[in-house]
Design a protein around this nucleic acid. Sequence first.
DNA 1: ACAAGACTAACAAACGTTCAGTCGGTAAAA
DNA 2: TTTTACCGACTGAACGTTTGTTAGTCTTGT
Lengths: 208, 208
Amino acid sequence: MVSDDLFADPPEDTQEEILQAAFEVLQEQGYSGLSIQRIANKVGLQKASIYYHYPDKDDLLLSFVDHILDRMESDLIRTADVSPKRQLEDILDSLLLDDRASTSAVEISPPSDNLLKVFIQIRAQATHNSDYQDRIAAIDERHEEHLAAIIQRGIDAGEFRDVNPNQVATALSTFILGSFSRRATGTPVSLEPVHKSMCSYLENSVYI
Amino acid sequence: MVSDDLFADPPEDTQEEILQAAFEVLQEQGYSGLSIQRIANKVGLQKASIYYHYPDKDDLLLSFVDHILDRMESDLIRTADVSPKRQLEDILDSLLLDDRASTSAVEISPPSDNLLKVFIQIRAQATHNSDYQDRIAAIDERHEEHLAAIIQRGIDAGEFRDVNPNQVATALSTFILGSFSRRATGTPVSLEPVHKSMCSYLENSVYI
DNA sequence: ACAAGACTAACAAACGTTCAGTCGGTAAAA
DNA sequence: TTTTACCGACTGAACGTTTGTTAGTCTTGT
């Protein structure tokens, strides 16, 4: 099983190693299989040793979720010094297209399949856990604000019509979320048609 | 806790009562809290009694998932004897708008919040369990075929442009999935802006 | 009397958690 | 320089609880 990393740099302390292990266990066993024992096995520690680094499981999971969501957010939100239209298309390209034949100005790498799967699982916990719900809601909100700002820039620059930025932003982020959910939970299907429809929406309803 | 029913008619045999109980436990405790003990408590039985009705937990969960997905699919897929354009709009209205000020021709009730939450949780299991993955993929496919058929009818009837039905259908179903995920995992937010954007996409890119 | 359906009781395994103890290394005291 | 104390990191064993599951028994309607 090839599993990519939770951290940009290789984990330095044991705490980070533990979070990386949790990341892998969650991919393989799902949230209900995410036990201290399995995390410990993955790190190569006794399960009692986990309690030296984290006071309890809840605390460990909280740290873990924070890291995952931070990582996810950094993939979703990037500033770039290009035209609004170009920026919007770069975002959609990088998030929805699998092949990296990217003509993108800024190098935006899409969330990996593994990160997406974990993200979707954490999101699912938000259905019954209000702590998770708050964090997810916060991410959604910031993502939308980011998109709305781009659209507002486009309107100001005369590139976009006088649409409601928040409305379009909500639609875009909902669309992106749907694509992520598809990629993570269905059979691997090309999102190219989705991307095409999205572009034609922008062409015909948003751009001048 | 007000929980709506998994079955249209009140459950008749104990087997159905058990599935209904599982439905409620899953809402309250999530997938990792879905234990035989809690299901038994909810039905008012000893946990050993569950094993009189189902051979083991796997089998119970399989039946449960089948029921949930059937129910979900029947909400997603409805035939109606109206114009393609009207049918498409009825579908979007019923799936995305919360208030029931519906001017819909056929009475389409949207999936309840509880059903959506459970659906999203089951979907999340598909990230690491191939049995679930297959079922989810099958649902997605039938949902898309349903939408594609409507679009094809629209093209034939001269109401729609000569778009690629499958491409548009994929986009629509992805969009709907995103809305569901939003409703189930974020803070309760109005999907009205999403609906508006979707309509303007159809107006400007699909309808004649 | 018979079978359907629910019960009690017990099982091994896995769960999260605690705690006393061990080991290597570093810093202070002799 | 040797001894002592300390400390961070980890181990091993045990705890009480919950998990899924089985076996056997009792109750109830036919």
